[in-house]
């Protein structure tokens, strides 16, 4: 599903920062992987590159058979929309849209009609167990509920991979477990490829493979 070959990334500046050094990585379809590392280790940069949010300087990144390199903004947006589902630490829901509208938003950028969007969004909300909260604004939802809405939004385009950036970082331990359970269910029931970036060892333990990164290099 994902193949990284000799990926290098340097942030230019007076003192150039070589954040990723010759990263080689292969993730198969249906894997539940965690990327762990201290802050400043380069794990966020790796996530940005995996999520087609940032470019890399050299190497090759293949996602589901597509070479991701030197893409135009438009092509990158399209690939993000169709192939990647994001889950963020701070949920990143749009505050003035209710749950169902938030979930439906990726389909808006695919040009799907309103009725169909809402129907598919409701399906996803049911799947994460939040159908009765469909018309609540994010401000009216608990942290765990917000993260489930975000997950429903990530799933609605039926992406190739789910990228989660500290998905439990803003949640208490109980809701953390619930959300992690949801990730695991997705992985086992739907064979979804999931990559979770975290610094929480408890989260890492619940994944099938842990990739450790430090000083821009994969150590395990």
């Amino acid at each position: 599903m994902i193949t990284l070959k000799d990926i290098n990334k340097t942030y230019p500046g007076i003192v150039p920062l070589h954040v990723l050094r010759d990263i080689n990585l292969h993730i198969d379809k249906g894997e539940l992987v965690s990327i762990m590392g201290a802050s400043g280790s380069g794990k966020s940069t790796l996530l940005n590159i995996l999520g087609i949010l940032d470019n890399y300087d050299s190497g090759e990144y293949w996602l589901d058979g597509v070479l991701i390199r030197n893409l135009s903004e438009n092509r990158a947006a399209e690939l993000r929309n169709r192939m990647i589902g994001f889950v963020f630490q701070s949920f990143n829901l749009i505050s003035y849209k209710d749950a169902v509208e938030n979930v439906a938003l990726p389909l808006f950028y695919q040009g799907v009609g309103r009725k169909k969007r809402r129907m598919l969004a409701m399906e996803q909300l049911e799947r994460v167990g939040l159908a009765e909260r469909a018309h609540h604004l994010p401000g009216e939802l608990s942290g765990g509920q917000k993260q489930r809405v975000a997950l429903a939004r990530a799933l609605i385009t039926n992406p190739s991979i789910i990228l989660a950036d500290e998905p439990t970082g803003a949640l208490d331990s109980k809701t953390s477990k619930e959300v992690m359970q949801l990730f695991r269910d997705l992985n086992t029931d739907r064979n979804m490829t999931i990559i979770i970036v975290t610094h929480d060892p408890g989260v890492g333990e619940q994944t099938s493979r842990i990739i450790r990164i430090s000083d821009g290099q994969i150590t395990v």
């Binding site: 990143n92 829901l93 749009i94």
Partner: peptide, 14 residues
């Protein structure tokens, strides 16, 4: 919000 929209697939022109 705009960043989120871009992340989930909005193009610059959108």
């Amino acid at each position: 919000e705009i960043g989120i929209r871009r992340a989930i697939g909005a193009k610059p022109l959108d």
